[in-house]
């Protein structure tokens, strides 16, 4: 059973507190969205969980192991701008995490091919990133994260840079893949609809320094489908969160 426990995280940047005692937990197979105004500290929290940014205080425990301040270790990260390595083909990009782990070429290539197939990019194995559209690049980015078969997936506004249509398709793709390989997800976004559509649970954060304004258990069944966005409960929740954030911003 995997489990993420983040406890009492503090972080300031040159004296400005961004996080003051933030804690959260993710259960096995749970999809958690971190929602909040931009600049509140969501990315910072995510990077602390990822180990890229050291916290001033607090701990990150994944599956019983204290991994505070360390990277790797069963976490897969999807970045906002996909951040593919331009000198690697799509396939090599997907295999990157496995190469770092020291897995042999034949094995990692086979696995990468599988995940490229999973994100619908058959036939693009040997394409360079610059030959792919933004949406396709992010598919490769998602495949790269899934390919290391992490127990925890970290996503920082992965669809933020895409146009609306592509974003909608990729949301569905992500759900489809995740449903076939369920794992813990921390998904940072400032899109209310996106959070409601994707997540099991939403943590709504205040403006900086971030604190949880409200925790929302999303009541919709899976698999989720597009028409859910017309559900009155969906619309109601969307309105509530929107007001919550507006009130917070006004203070």
């Amino acid at each position: 059973m995997s489990h993420l426990i983040v406890t009492d995280i503090h972080k300031s940047f040159s004296g400005t507190p961004v996080l003051t005692g933030q804690s959260l937990q993710v259960k096995d197979g749970e999809f958690v969205a971190l929602l909040g105004p931009s600049g509140c500290g969501k990315s910072t929290l995510l990077q602390i969980v990822n180990g890229l940014i050291p916290a001033d205080r607090g701990s990150v425990v994944l599956n019983g192991e204290d991994i505070t301040g360390r990277t790797g270790k069963g976490r897969g990260m999807v970045f906002q701008g996909s951040e593919l390595m331009p000198w690697r083909s799509a396939l090599e990009n997907v295999a990157f995490g496995l190469e770092v782990m020291g897995i042999g070429r034949a094995q990692r290539t086979a696995r990468a091919r599988e995940y490229l197939h999973l994100v619908g990019l058959d036939g693009f194995e040997h394409s360079w990133p610059h030959q792919l559209s933004g949406g396709m690049q992010q598919r490769v980015g998602i495949a790269r994260a899934f390919c290391i078969q992490p127990s925890l997936l970290l996503m920082d506004e992965p669809f933020g840079a895409l146009d609306v249509q592509t974003r909608d398709t990729l949301q569905d793709e992500l759900l489809r893949i995740w449903e076939s390989e369920p794992k813990m997800v921390l998904f940072v976004t400032h899109g209310i609809e996106e959070a409601l559509y994707l997540a099991d649970r939403i943590l709504v954060y205040s403006k900086r320094p971030a604190s949880v304004l409200r925790e929302i258990q999303v009541p919709f069944e899976r698999p989720r489908r597009e028409d859910m966005k017309m559900d009155p409960r969906f619309l109601e929740l969307r309105r509530e969160i929107s007001e919550l954030l507006r009130d917070d911003a006004a203070h």
């Binding site: 180990g51 890229l52 990277t71 790797g72 990260m77 970045f79 701008g81 390595m85 782990m101």
Partner: peptide
Amino acid sequence: NLLDVARSYG
């Protein structure tokens, strides 16, 4: 960012 990618993959 690319350096971060590599580091984040351990």
